[in-house]
Amino acid sequence: MPSITFIHPDGRQQQIEAGDGESAMQAATRNDVSGILAECGGNAMCATCHVYVAEEWLARLPAMSDDEDALLDGAAAERRPSSRLSCQIKLAVDLDGLVLNLPDRQL
């Protein structure tokens, strides 16, 4: 089971255990990580599960779809090169230790 760490805007770190095949968003909502809203429930439609992926992990994630790319343009917080939607990050063993930074807002 991959373990992932969310870093809140105030620097607080929250480590959670994700179930196999879960998305980072699903793991976050199941563990009540504030800062991940996921209004659309993981359907890549709302951009309220926006995260900034830690530099060293960025290249190890699968490429983003055009849908995700377009949605990130509309995200509430600033879009950065490390921006992803956490509902599109499927967690497998190879992502054990993944670090995701939370933006200051999702709306």
């Binding site: 439609m45 849908d67 949605l71 343009d73 509309g74 995200a75």
Partner: peptide, 8 residues
């Protein structure tokens, strides 16, 4: 989806 996007 684009006409009703977060940007829109």
């Amino acid at each position: 989806a684009q006409v009703l996007s977060p940007t829109a």
